[in-house]
Design a protein around this nucleic acid. Structure first.
Lengths: 152, 152
DNA sequence: GTTGACATTCCCATGGTTGGAAGGTTGAGT
DNA sequence: ACTCAACCTTCCAACCATGGGAATGTCAAC
């Protein structure tokens, strides 16, 4: 199987397959005489595993661990569960942060008439130290992380 | 005021102040004879505005708009509200994605004994096409975005 | 033998932020 | 005057996942 077929079969783009190889998430693929990578069923299975784990929001680092646990038939389920729990608590933390942002923003929006007049509590709140009631209480925690950008 | 003082006064690191200047979020700062940037109260006020908007999760691009709206005394509140609403809906969308990830993961974790035995439904579900009940139903949407990594 | 669909490597960009290196400036203490 | 620490400057690289594109090579079918 070429990388394109592998991509179709696994649901991971050829670009990403090469990338995963380059960061050591998957072992170097075999090469044909002309230098093409080739993949077998086992490789595809691994790629699918990775896709699912990514879909579940695991980081590359966590997936690396999951893969090694996966390939170790002797590992205790405890370790896997622990990793998953760690990830879950990170997810929950992130959700709470976003929720408090959303709540604060929602509050501001409600107080804004949104008409043709220039008076706007949203800007006031962002600008002013003292207009800061609930808004800054709920937001002034060290909460921002990079990359919460929404694709597209 | 030097950049260091400005950083302390605004709560934005000197690094980021330079960065914001470089991407045009703030105008080029004045320079002393020796090339040091200097800032006055108005600049600090702007920086604080930016910090608050970042804390509220606005992107740099959105903040750019907010700043221009802020400096325009004539702008209708409608525009600001619209921007805030757009951001809010992005936040909500993101929250829902994370929630469905968390729910699915939580489901898996509950089914895992987490003991010394190697049998683990979490790995099974990630590996297997057919073990995929609710898990993949809730996860197999085009949902993953980059950078949901949780800092440290 | 040409064409089209693949493959390869390499570099660049995104988003926000941080880190470091290598060097110049300032101000205070000796 | 000299030194030292604390500041400042610029440039470059990294995180993470992903995609775009260029330049070039290979394989199949017609």
């Amino acid at each position: 199987m070429n990388i394109g077929e592998a991509a179709r079969a696994s649901g991971i783009s050829a670009k990403m397959i090469r990338h995963y190889e380059s960061i050591g998430l998957i072992p170097n693929a075999g090469r044909s005489l002309s230098g093409y990578r080739y993949y077998d069923k086992k490789n595809i299975h691994t790629l699918r595993f990775i896709r699912r784990a990514r879909t579940a929001g695991f980081s590359a680092e966590q997936i690396k661990k999951l893969l090694s646990l996966w390939s170790d038939q002797q590992r205790p389920a405890r370790e896997v569960k622990q990793l998953a729990e760690q990830h879950l608590s990170q997810l929950k933390e992130r959700i709470n942060e976003l929720k408090s942002m959303a709540a604060a923003l929602s509050e501001l929006i409600m107080h804004c008439q949104g008409d043709d007049r220039p008076d706007c509590p949203i800007l006031k709140s962002l600008a002013d130290e003292d207009t800061t009631q609930e808004f800054n209480n709920s937001l002034n925690k060290p909460s921002i992380r990079h990359g919460q950008s929404l694709k597209k």
